[in-house]
Amino acid sequence: MIAAVNQRANGPGAGRAQIAFSGVTLNLGGKAILENISLDVKPGEFLCIIGASGCGKTTALRLAAGLYQPTSGTVAFDGKPMLAPRRDIAIVFQDYGKALLPWRTAFGNVSLALEASGMAASQRAARIDELLKKVGLPNHAGKYPAEMSGGMQQRLQIARCLAQEPKALLMDEPFGALDAMTRQGLQDEVLSLVRASDATVVFVTHDLEEAIYLGDRVIGLLPHPGRIGIELKIDLPRPRDQLTTRENPEFLRLRRELFDFIKASEA
């Protein structure tokens, strides 16, 4: 049984949507990837998207980023239609190894975003040091990505995204390739970074617990074609804690509900 629970993150009518999908359908190569997705993400909300592999989670994120255009329906950001990527929407890709410039040091990789925004060279150094410190890489400015661990490379990518001073942070299974300990550490760091920046987050993951742990709201997609199958409001207290939050009976109940949803969607 799939129970679609329609709840708003901050109650009905609490401010305008920052990211708004209305009736979005996307066909690629004659195949429907996403069908009739309508979705509002409020400013400052942390939305997680889960679903079985191939359900179009990443595609939905790319639509929000402006990297794809919908076949029908509209994607809007701050009330304006998204026709191209925006500098104030940052994307954290899963494959950090491909998204970083291997010929630039950690310092140079963060610098790329500042150069693109036209910041004067004299102001960059201090800002880069500050950003590297924020993601826990203050002593690695001179290292090349190849000299860094996966977790460090992903932190570096996050630092570059923060350099864009994004209003929205779109994260595509950012911790999928990392080991469990590193992943938990980064989850907490992302939560505190987001809290400090007030950015809206859309976070795609296949890890149900990760979605519940991080999100204000979790949306589950059904595959072939991708459409919204479940929507859960996560009312767990913040700040969240790796031990107590995950032991909370509400956490376990939500986990059960999402687990059943995924199982039913794959059947």
């Binding site: 990297l67 925006r86 500098r87 890709f93 410039l101 010929w103």
Partner: peptide
Amino acid sequence: EPRLYEVARSLHMSRLAIIFKIALPS
């Protein structure tokens, strides 16, 4: 790497910057 072109797009890098900062070094 096509991913780098996507990074460049989301940063609104100019064509010239893409050539000299991404394609040529790559």
